[in-house]
Nucleic acid binder design. Structure first.
Length: 787
DNA sequence: CACCCTCGAGTTCA
DNA sequence: CTCGAGGGTG
């Protein structure tokens, strides 16, 4: 697969990118420092492009020091240079547990004895060196090139967690303390919100925000700007994790050094652990790989240090990094890539949504090439231009999100996105559905190909008629085939009239899974596929009945092509037949009435029992149904007004679709649900053994309970299985009772009593007693030892 | 007039 | 699964 790569490929890419980086930095030095041109501009640009490409293919290789992340070389010389007393080294990186294990083997061999490993979180921030003379902070400097950094003392003094004076005693007369300045994730969000409010550009990530805040200049600023600068600096925090040269330290280990630093009043991380083996360190790495979000700052890796100080001297350092420490880098959750274009898509409701088309890039474990931009205002707010290098991440580890442009990397060729005036699918002029709406919609609901395709797909979706086979690809084939030129479906009205003959001839163009573009054969023609047709080879009919020897003698070959409906085609028709008698609420959902999803549809179907009853109901009667209000009532009534909607009902009815619940006594019959779960709200999340996602919901409803999709304080139970996500956390936070699959199975059959809870109160309105013991989750699985 | 909740859309993966 | 938008309810 193109999306994965081997360790060897990564090694090769790393070697190449390091060579490129060295060369580029040399050239920049030559260019900015002296005047001799050592390479042509083309060569330089070529190297930069190659490096950018490598970093996109192997995001692990991106680092804050990369030439692709900095403008024209060395830090702008706005700040005074400071020479570090002791050189500030960086750390070597490893990218896998195997590489880490290899490093550990080498360390233990070179040490000649067992080694304790100090594991700590690698904060994604800015390395800073604090110099205290006689216990008083005199200088704070960035790392710079390791020898000379920038003097940011004035700004650092405004960071609260950094003491101006060391507490206690026992500190050397001159001491350099190393640490990381960062902005907590929460403060980062606030800061960006403020930047937006002020009309300033937003920071792409917390590290940039920390660096940007620290590198502000007070001179020449207005009073307001100064206040703003102070408030930004106040958001910064620092954690220290090391100490410069110290000849006769009173302790033997790095972990004890942290104790000393803390004793001096310096902020040290509580998230460190000493592990007696490399395997233990690997466990620490894996634990935080899964809990990166649970810490207040961004983590881009783990730092593992040999704990014993005596070994630091014995192992020594290379020119750029110590041999007694290593940084394990997690696959990045944020990467840079090129924004190739912004394209507008139209969904089933006609909403026009711009989305970013990007150079494919690997982020948080998968390759991403598209991300939604929601609407034109969001595009503006994010400030991205077509052609920009953009910062991309996976929100909640799943949904790709463009955060913003890397403004420094613009070359002037970028252009602004302009929202098209016409629907990209049918050419109709886009317009807001009502005054003041930001979203633009294509008003051509009936025949806009994008909307028809979307609605047909929706009919088949799980929340509607749940028709197997009828997914995105099939919906497209039925509504926009390459051949025949008139699609079998002009609207969803004809869905249940489809016959085998209508669909076997359908040809579609094969899309490339990698690029999303049409696949082209060697001769340049698009590659076609006939999804509803099976082609097999047989002997010609006249050869039937001959035996094998005879056939061979007469020269018959098995090359007579036979076309027959594919399994897909037959399955589709069977599924459509099954769909005709599914529950009324599913039929309602499949009609694509605004605001009528599974929940509202269930309420309406339960109350009225038939589509006829719904159609002839008054607005007030509709709105009297629980969960339905005036807006939904209007949407329902408006839907019936359109002729082509009537046509859907007529043709579906004629084809045998059941628009009524058999045996339903008629409107108003809703009646309070009873059953073991009457009056209780249950949320199912994760995979519950013995239930499908749908099945769990059905079980809740069948038992008279309410199946909700999100956890709130009104939720009585959260049934959570493996893979449960944020809902579980929310349930814990709210103290909602959490049960497992086995308890859930008991609950839906026997009610709360079956799992030892008090039975439901008679009145459904009475909230169930919140069970306090549910909130006492144990933190025992955390490997944290401190505090 | 607050919440709290559902809807709808987009996205990727197994 | 998550987010924003906007509807429903107390």
């Amino acid at each position: 697969m193109a999306e994965t790569y081997t360790i060897e490929e990564l090694d090769a890419a790393r070697a190449e990118s390091q060579a490129l980086t060295t060369r580029i930095l040399e050239l920049r030095d030559a260019y900015y420092g002296r005047d001799a041109a050592v390479a042509s501009d083309e060569e330089y640009d070529g190297m930069m492009q190659r490096l950018e490409l490598l970093e996109r293919m192997f995001p692990e290789l991106q680092s804050q020091d990369s030439p692709t992340q900095t403008v024209g070389g060395r830090a702008q010389t706005l700040f005074d240079p400071v020479q570090h007393v002791e050189r500030m080294l960086s750390l070597d990186n490893v990218f896998s547990i195997d590489e880490f294990a290899a490093w550990a083997v080498k360390v233990e061999r070179d040490s000649g004895r067992r080694v304790d490993y100090l594991c700590e979180l690698k904060i994604d921030g800015l390395a800073i060196n604090l110099r205290y003379e006689d216990g008083v902070l005199t200088t704070a400097a960035t790392r710079g090139d390791g020898v000379v950094g920038e003097d940011v003392t004035e700004n650092v003094r405004l960071i609260e967690s950094i003491p101006q004076k060391l507490e206690g005693s026992g500190h050397p007369p001159i001491v350099e303390v190393r640490g990381e300045v960062f902005i907590p994730v929460e403060a980062f969000r606030e800061l960006n919100a403020e930047q937006v409010a002020l009309g300033d550009r937003v920071f792409a990530n917390p590290r940039n925000a920390a660096a940007g805040s620290l590198r502000q200049k007070a001179e020449g600023k207005s009073v307001e700007k100064l206040a703003q600068m102070r408030s930004r600096l106040a958001k910064l925090r620092m954690l220290v994790h090391g100490i410069g040269a110290w000849d006769n330290p009173p302790v033997d280990s790095q972990s004890e050094v942290y104790g000393l630093l803390a004793g001096w009043g310096l902020p040290t991380s509580t998230y460190f652990q000493v592990k007696p083996t490399a395997e233990g360190a690997a466990e620490f790495i894996e634990y935080y790989g899964e809990h990166r979000d649970s810490v207040l700052h961004e983590i881009d890796g783990i730092v593992i240090k040999v704990d014993e100080l005596a070994l630091h001297g014995e192992l020594g350092a290379t020119s750029r990094a110590p041999r007694w420490a290593i940084a394990y880098k997690y696959p990045p959750e944020q990467v840079n890539t090129k924004l190739l274009d912004i394209v507008v898509s139209v969904g089933r409701t006609g909403r026009a949504t711009p989305f970013a088309v990007m150079e494919p890039v690997r982020v948080a474990g998968s390759v991403v090439r598209q991300a939604t931009l929601h609407n034109q205002d969001v595009v503006k707010l994010k400030g991205v231009l077509i052609g920009d290098t953009v910062v991309l991440r996976k929100a909640g580890d799943v949904i790709p999100e463009v955060l913003g442009p890397v403004v420094e990397l613009r070359d002037g060729s970028e252009r602004e996105f302009v929202m098209p005036e016409a629907c990209p699918a049918c050419g109709t002029t886009l317009a807001p559905a009502k005054e003041g709406d930001i979203d633009l919609r294509c008003p051509n609901a009936r025949s806009c190909p994008a909307q028809v395709r979307g609605r047909v797909e929706h009919v088949g979706s799980r929340g509607a008629l749940d028709i197997e086979v009828l997914g995105e690809v099939t919906a497209a084939a039925l509504t926009q085939p390459l051949v025949p030129s008139t699609p079998p479906l002009v609207t969803e009205a004809g869905l249940f009239d489809l016959s085998i003959d209508d669909i076997v001839g359908i040809e579609v163009i094969v899309k490339d899974a990698e690029t999303g573009l049409d696949r082209v054969d060697d001769d340049g023609s698009p590659r076609k596929r006939t999804p509803f047709q099976k082609v097999s080879t047989e002997y010609p009919p006249e050869a039937e009945g001959l035996d094998a020897a005879e056939r061979r003698k007469r020269g018959y070959k098995k090359d007579f092509r036979v076309y027959s409906p594919s399994a897909q085609a037959e399955k589709l028709l069977v599924e459509l037949e099954l769909a005709k008698t599914k529950d009324l609420w599913r039929i309602l959902v499949s009609l694509s009435i605004r605001h009528v999803g599974p929940v509202a549809a269930r309420a309406l179907a339960g109350y009225f029992g038939s589509l006829d009853a719904i159609r002839s109901a008054s607005r007030d009667e509709l709105a009297s149904v629980e969960g339905v209000g005036g807006i939904i009532a209007d949407a329902v009534l408006d839907w019936f007004e359109l002729d082509w909607h009537q046509e859907i009902i007529e043709r579906w009815s004629a084809a045998g679709v059941q628009f009524a619940t058999p045996g339903h006594p008629g409107p108003g019959a809703a009646g309070a649900a009873d059953g073991p779960l009457a009056g209780l709200t249950v949320v199912a999340t994760g995979s519950l053994e013995g239930f499908t996602r749908e099945g769990a919901q059905e079980a809740i409803i069948a038992a008279g309970g309410k199946s909700a999709s999100s956890v709130s304080k009104k939720t009585d139970y959260v049934a959570a299985g493996p893979g449960a996500g944020s809902k579980l956390g929310k349930a814990e936070a709210l103290g909602v009772r959490i049960i497992d699959a086995a308890q859930f199975a008991l609950l839906v059959t026997g009610g709360p009593a079956a799992i030892g809870d008090a039975p439901v109160a008679a009145e459904p309105e009475t909230p169930a007693e919140p069970s306090a013991e549910a909130a006492t989750d144990d933190a025992a699985d955390s490997p944290l030892n401190a505090e």
